[in-house]
Design a protein around this nucleic acid. Structure first.
Length: 627
RNA sequence: GGAUCUGUGGCGUAACUUGGAUAGCGCACCUGGCUUCGGACCAGGGGGUUGCGGGUUCAAAUCCCGCCAGGUCCA
């Protein structure tokens, strides 16, 4: 679907191409020369500067030549030449009608763009280690992942939302050791505490005890036992991780974040995916099993076998990557490679699936891999998006390189890593699970604080019932938190501060929600039911500025999706809200001078409300009717 | 040692992928605006050699090269 802006831009490109050809210029020069005008007119074209390189004449004269040859477009009122730019003044009535039509046609339940062409995509987030409650750093992951997933759906991909559970890793081992040795770490299990928090306490204490008493060998043995099917330790590890995941869901659900499937690292092993992936690598002659030397008895990938390596791997000190250690325990990379072969359908789907939760609050079931269950059609995607922090870029690149070395060039190309920056604490501290710096900075803490603040700010104006007040406070809190995590470019590190996370003014989620609530109030008070309107009454600057913002909704969504940058949407929500606020302040809506203007402005208000609600939903932010 | 990300008014950021007109916005600061369709707001003002130095170009925050500083990874 084209937006009204996309439509006119395409028409202008076509008309300009003809005009350039008619003048004897190369129409290929037009690429990226047409955009919204910054100073004069509505849309402008800078192609004359490029033409002037190959042809005599000043850009201004060339622009004039081109403009003279332009065929008339009913969407354009007039054309002017200024400083070498060709500036188009839109026919406001026509453009308004085009814009309103497509905004009213946009259905939140359906893709707004078909850029994804119904291809299957798998998105993975937040894949947190089951050792401590989600902290604000991991929350950035979950909020980003949720938003990118929304964007993929909006762009017409068939989407699978997955969470990968590293239940065999070092962190899980430390946490398990902690809960098995509560007497040593001096911590009694507090059944009143949410399980992830209780486990987190044990994990931090265990890590300290293990380090102080140099028990690394004991942990290594524990990991070996966790790895073997049928041992007491492996059963306990899985049970504990499942309990953790259930508690973690409470947090994610409170944030409105959902998945389709949990994939367990232990199932990658037990359902033989790892074994099969190694067999494939072996067949392709990509792995070695040295009998002696540094890597004796390990299964490794010799980097020399991977062909031309990207610059990331140029200066490596190690000449090989270990997949399976000498003691037979596969490392994270080995399992990640198998997992990604599955994602792309290179491995047979030998997982067994069952419901982990029959119905999430969004109404959809959450499935899980496991020992029991049936075959289902998960995996086998064309595209994968991994929301994983930037520290793991090298590891992600390695998976990509290996897929490429396997001859799976398309899979390698379609494996996208959103390498987002870390969240630091004020004063420069980092969030480290094992050190317990997350205490006081968990996702649960944050939502509780934000909700409390939002609740205290809700006035008496609407005489809310207690329940309504609570619901509204939660929505505003989510608006503040999610917006604060999404408004920055993902690659930037961010410093978490309570003041910023609880900011409800200026460029913020609550500001957008407030603007929406004002718009909705007008619509409620007006009694308007239908969306009919008379576009020639919408011609003033504040109105048309809002129309221009509305006209680019689809372009914004596609850009944000293609670039994996939800901050593009966040910016757009602010732009929309400013444009509406300005319109709202400068013009009378309910008290418009006559019925035609009143109706037109209310229709514009409704179009704005639709677009803003849609955009905020892409960020995972709910709207409120009053606040 | 190599790789990678970041550097934009006092602070936080957008625009960089695809070069284009006066570098957009928020916080803080200053001025003005509610017997008002909702002040969690709006309008206006001060504040910028876009880390530094070269290069390419009619045009550079944006592209190229070299530095500097900070984060991260290979470890």
């Amino acid at each position: 679907m084209l937006s009204s802006y996309g439509q006119i831009r395409e028409e202008l490109y076509a008309a300009l191409a003809d005009a350039l050809e008619a003048c004897g210029y190369d129409s290929g020069l037009l690429t990226n020369t047409v955009d919204f005008a910054k100073t004069v007119g509505d849309i402008s074209c800078s192609v004359a500067f490029r033409v002037a390189k190959a042809h005599p004449g000043a850009p201004g004269d060339i622009a004039k030549n081109i403009a003279d040859k332009l065929i008339k477009n009913p969407r354009v009122q007039r054309v002017s030449i200024d400083n070498g730019y060709i500036n188009f003044y839109l026919n406001r009535e026509r453009f308004t009608k085009d814009t309103m039509d497509y905004i009213f046609d946009a259905d939140p339940a359906k893709p707004i763009s078909n850029a994804g062409a119904s291809e299957k995509a798998i998105i993975e987030y937040p894949s947190a280690n089951p050792a401590h409650p989600l902290h604000v750093g991991q929350l950035r992951n979950a909020i980003l992942g949720n938003s990118v997933a929304n964007l993929y759906s909006a762009c017409g991909y068939r989407l699978e939302r997955e969470d990968y559970i590293d239940d065999l890793g070092l962190q899980a081992a430390h946490a398990l050791w902690g809960s098995m040795n509560r007497d040593k770490i001096g911590l009694a299990f507090d059944p009143k505490k949410k399980f992830d928090h209780a486990l987190g306490d044990a994990y931090v204490a265990a890590y300290k005890y293990i380090t102080d008493n140099k028990l690394d060998e004991e942990i290594k043995k524990l990991m070996e036992l966790m790895d073997q099917e049928g041992t007491y330790e492996s059963g306990l590890a899985r049970k504990q991780a499942e309990e953790y995941i259930a508690a973690e869901r409470e947090t994610l659900f409170a944030y409105g974040i959902y998945h389709d499937l949990l994939v367990w690292e232990s199932d990658v092993i037990h359902d033989r995916l790892l074994e099969k992936s190694l067999a494939i690598l072996e067949k392709l002659n990509l792995v070695d099993k040295p009998k002696d030397g540094k890597y004796a008895n390990c299964v490794i990938i010799d980097l020399k076998r991977l062909g031309n390596l990207p610059p990331e791997f140029k200066g490596l000190r190690e000449e090989a990557k270990v997949l399976i250690r000498a003691n037979g325990v596969p490392n994270y990379l080995a399992k990640d490679i198998a997992f990604h072969m599955w994602k792309f359908g290179i491995l047979d789907n030998t997982f067994k699936f069952s419901e982990f939760i029959g119905r999430q609050p969004n109404g959809m079931p959450l499935y899980t891999t496991g020992r029991e269950g049936e075959r289902m059609r998960f995996g086998g995607a064309k595209k994968a998006v991994n929301i994983i922090d930037a520290r793991q870029s090298a590891e992600q690149m390695m998976v990509k390189v290996i897929l490429d070395a396997m001859g799976r060039h398309n899979a390698a190309k379609e494996l996208n890593h959103l390498a987002y920056g870390v969240v630091e604490l004020e004063g420069g501290a980092t969030l480290a699970g094992r050190k317990g710096t997350w205490v006081g900075h968990t996702a649960d803490d944050l939502l509780r604080e934000a909700t409390e603040k939002a609740r205290s700010m809700i006035g008496e104006r609407f005489r809310f019932q207690e329940k309504e007040k609570d619901d509204t406070a939660v929505k505003i809190a989510l608006g503040a938190i999610k917006f604060e995590f999404l408004r920055f470019s993902p690659e930037k590190n961010i410093t978490f501060s309570w003041a910023k996370a609880l900011n409800f003014q200026g460029d913020s989620g609550p500001y957008c929600q407030y603007t929406y609530a004002r718009a909705l109030r007008l619509l409620e008070d007006s009694g308007i039911k239908d969306k009919s309107f008379d576009p020639d009454e919408i011609t003033t600057d504040p109105e048309f500025a809002l129309i221009k913002q509305l006209s680019r909704l689809v372009e914004v969504v596609e850009k944000s999706c293609n670039e994996l940058r939800p901050n593009v949407i966040a910016d757009y929500c602010i732009d929309l809200s400013y444009a509406f606020s300005n319109f709202y302040e400068q013009l009378q809506i309910l008290k418009a001078p006559d019925e035609k203007h009143r109706h037109s402005r209310l229709a514009l208000t409704l179009a704005f409300a639709n677009a803003l609600k849609y955009s905020l939903a892409l960020l995972g932010i709910p709207v409120v009717n009053r606040m």
